[in-house]
């Protein structure tokens, strides 16, 4: 549990390279529990017949075990990855700067009509329309309504215009 397999394809890029190809976790060998390789010599003492093939097989198994142990990364033994506040802020600034260089419009807030309110309780807890404003509206509505009903169309000119007479007069002038 808690182990990840790591292939050794990019061994040459480790160590000096601190870019994205660098290992995220520490040296797996130092963090993994020590795998005790059975000493094949001590177990085959006294077994003279066929000891060489068995020893070779055990050596192979021990080699495979050692390679597997070196390729395993014990995540549980690497400690927690909690960031302190300062490191978190530094990373935030770094990532924001990177994103800003890649796409300047990505972090731009949308142009919304309704913006976020930092202290909503102040506005939500504010009193409703004051009595002064209610009185103002009531007075203004009554006054405007009376003024609108008092509008009368006052015609200062003749409603019927002798259009034909003016046209004939204009034609006679043009002639």
């Amino acid at each position: 549990m808690g182990c990840c397999f790591s292939c050794n394809d990019d061994d040459d890029s480790q160590g000096v390279d601190s870019s994205e190809r660098a290992r995220l976790l520490q040296d797996p060998v130092s963090n993994t529990p020590v795998v005790r390789v059975p000493q094949s010599d001590s177990r085959v003492v006294g077994n003279s017949s066929g000891s060489h093939p068995q020893r070779g097989q055990e050596d192979e198994l021990a080699k495979i075990l050692q390679e597997t142990a070196s390729a395993m990364i014990d995540v549980s033994g690497s400690g927690s990855h909690s960031l302190d506040q300062r490191e978190f802020q530094e990373r935030t600034r770094h990532y924001l700067a990177k994103v800003q260089t890649l796409s300047p419009t990505l972090l731009r807030p949308p142009n919304l009509l309704l913006g976020d309110t930092p202290n909503p309780e102040k506005h939500l807890g504010a009193p409703l329309i004051s009595q002064e404003d209610i009185d103002l509206m009531e007075w203004a509505m009554n006054e405007v309504e009376a003024a609108l009903y008092s509008i009368r169309v006052v015609h200062s000119e003749d409603l019927v215009v002798p259009f034909g007479g003016q046209q004939q007069a204009a034609m006679s002038v043009s002639d």
């Binding site: 103002l136 203004a140 006054e143 405007v144 009376a146 003024a147 609108l148 008092s150 509008i151 009368r152 169309v153 006052v154």
Partner: peptide
């Protein structure tokens, strides 16, 4: 004709704090 309406709107504009008024 609409002089009374204009007068009333001017009276509303004269109230404290009022910076605009419209009738629709």
């Amino acid at each position: 004709m609409e002089a009374q309406l204009e007068d009333q709107l001017n009276a509303i504009m004269a109230r404290p704090g009022v910076v605009g008024v419209t009738c629709v």
